[in-house]
């Protein structure tokens, strides 16, 4: 590994998101190269800076009082605008206060426990009745919907590329602005026992979507629901394979027309 390459990988090395092999190579190089060792020190300084968050004390004080002792409010608010993690933690902290207050308003623990069985049984009965009602409604709606095509989704059956070409099945799937997504069924001919299966969707060499541990039905088919906004127009390649070495794989072609 060259110094330049190692230097480029340092942010991900520090972030622990390098693949194991690459990480080992970087460590091996760092142990032998003092110049890159210095570079690691500088990269760590940058990493620490960019990975800086508000201390939990400051977040909790800010959630409670809108300020924190010894801290400029503008600094806190500027950071909160930038940092999703701190912002999420602040939201959770505020929710926590609301939950505590609402629990107290309901009468606290002892009081609540006294009535909890009453509420629990009545609540369960209400949920059961509601579930039965919703179940009946959904069954009725399913019956209605099964008689007409589902609006907003295109249903696409894909066969392995070679089989599709042999039989001349290379139809375009039309998407319009009302299409929410496509439901794709891959009629795989791969052996059933070679899982777990992974899937990649590419436009030329650009990876658009990937998924691990793909579910397969007993007939060997894979089913995917893909949001329309995610998919570009044109020819996409769908690759299904098992194992890192792609020991068993199949290509599918998905043609989209907007």
């Amino acid at each position: 590994m060259e110094c330049k390459h190692v230097s480029e990988l340092l942010p991900w090395y520090l972030n622990e998101t390098l693949p194991e092999g690459e990480r080992a190579d970087v460590e091996h190089h760092l142990a032998a190269c003092p110049a890159c060792g210095d570079d690691l020190g500088r990269a760590h300084k940058a990493f620490e800076l960019f990975n800086q968050h508000l201390p939990s004390r400051v977040l909790v004080d800010y959630a409670a009082d809108g300020e924190a002792a010894g801290w400029e409010t503008s600094l806190i608010e500027n950071h909160l605008r930038d940092c999703e993690e701190c912002s999420m933690e602040l939201t959770l902290t505020r929710q926590s206060l609301l939950q505590l207050e609402s629990r107290e308003k309901r009468g606290g623990a002892g009081h609540g426990r006294r009535f909890s069985r009453f509420y629990l049984f009545n609540g369960l009965a209400a949920v059961l009745i509601a579930a039965l009602g919703v179940g009946w409604l959904m069954t009725w709606q399913d019956l209605q919907q099964s008689m007409e095509p589902q609006a907003g989704y295109r249903v696409v059956d894909l066969f392995p590329q070679e089989a599709a070409q042999r039989s001349g099945m290379d139809d375009k799937t039309a998407l319009d602005e009302n299409t929410n997504g496509i439901a794709v069924t891959l009629h795989s001919q791969l052996p059933l026992d070679n899982g777990p299966w992974r899937l990649e969707i590419r436009e030329n060499d650009r990876l658009i979507w990937e998924k691990d541990k793909l579910h397969r039905d007993p007939d060997g088919r894979f089913t995917l629901i893909l949001p329309a906004t995610m998919l570009p127009e044109g020819a996409l390649t769908v690759l299904v394979y098992s194992g890192d070495e792609k020991t068993a794989s199949e290509h599918y072609r998905l043609l989209l027309d907007r």
């Binding site: 972030n15 760590h44 939990s56 004390r57 977040l59 909790v60 993690e85 933690e89 959770l92």
Partner: peptide
């Protein structure tokens, strides 16, 4: 809240 935030951060903190 302190403890929960610190616990969350400990879970996601990277080691160097």
């Amino acid at each position: 809240c302190h403890s929960c935030i610190d616990y969350l951060r400990k879970q996601h903190s990277k080691t160097f």
